[in-house]
Amino acid sequence: MRNAPSRRDGERCEMCAEPVEQSHPHVVDLDSRELMCTCRPCSFLFVPEGAAAGRYRAVPERYQQFPEFALTRAQWEALGVPVGMAFFFRNSRLGRVVAFYPSPAGATESELTVAGWEEVVAVNPGLADAEPDVEAVLVADRNVEGPVGAGEDAFDCFLVPIDACYELVGHLRRQWRGFDGGQEVRERLQRFFDDLRTRSRPVRTGQEAS
């Protein structure tokens, strides 16, 4: 999927050409895998399932954290993700879950092992509630988030709008310096996860995720 476009003065809705605010909704074009900037009235048109013959879907604004998320280091390595953070979502056109991780080149797809992901979901069934194409499961090794989890052998897990993931990827790509990204990238990651914790509703085992 193409990264969400950066903010520009005079940015307009890509559906009706009306001006949009800096914080505005997005719609996913399922055929091109592009994120489209939209005004709120236009985004509402694509909330119902099957709208526009199923080509477009509005990105929700749901944020959740899974405090009881269970993942071992061995399970993470079995997923085949080469870094400590990735987001996972179901691509309805491909009919499977795909995984992407941030890199200097932008969002990079990882060759996800299906069996490994199914094992993770079996232990954490709430992850299956993410809406295809428009919501992602973001998993991060606490060692990549900054001081909050430094040194801990544990992972955090959030359910987030897909545009939040691509916004983060875009910021990291622009700020990346050297081999490991540099201090700016580390500070950006810490701010991002601090913000996620603030806005996310905790969902525990047995709770409805909606």
Results as ranks from 00 to 15, higher is better:
M1F: 07
R2K: 14
R2N: 12
N3M: 14
A4T: 15
E11D: 15
E11C: 11
E18G: 11
S23M: 10
H24W: 03
H24Q: 05
P25E: 07
H26G: 04
V27G: 09
D29T: 05
L30P: 00
D31W: 00
C37Y: 09
C39W: 09
S43V: 02
F44N: 14
G50L: 07
G54I: 09
Y56D: 08
R57F: 02
Q64I: 10
Q64H: 10
F66T: 03
F66P: 06
P67W: 06
R73S: 13
R73M: 06
E77L: 15
E77V: 11
V81K: 01
G84E: 06
F87W: 14
R93A: 13
L94A: 11
L94Q: 12
V98L: 04
F100R: 09
F100D: 06
A105I: 03
A107P: 03
A107N: 00
T108H: 02
S110D: 09
T113D: 15
V114A: 15
V114M: 12
G116H: 05
E119R: 13
N124Y: 05
E131K: 09
A136C: 14
V137K: 07
L138P: 04
V144P: 00
E145A: 12
G146T: 08
P147C: 08
P147S: 13
G149Y: 04
A150L: 15
A150H: 12
G151C: 02
D153N: 14
F155G: 02
C157I: 03
F158I: 02
P161S: 02
I162V: 10
A164C: 05
A164P: 07
Q175L: 15
W176E: 10
D180C: 00
D180Y: 12
Q183N: 11
R186N: 11
L189V: 04
L189R: 09
F193A: 02
F193L: 08
D195P: 07
D195Q: 07
T198A: 12
R199F: 08
R204Q: 10
Q207G: 03
Q207M: 14
A209K: 03
A209P: 14
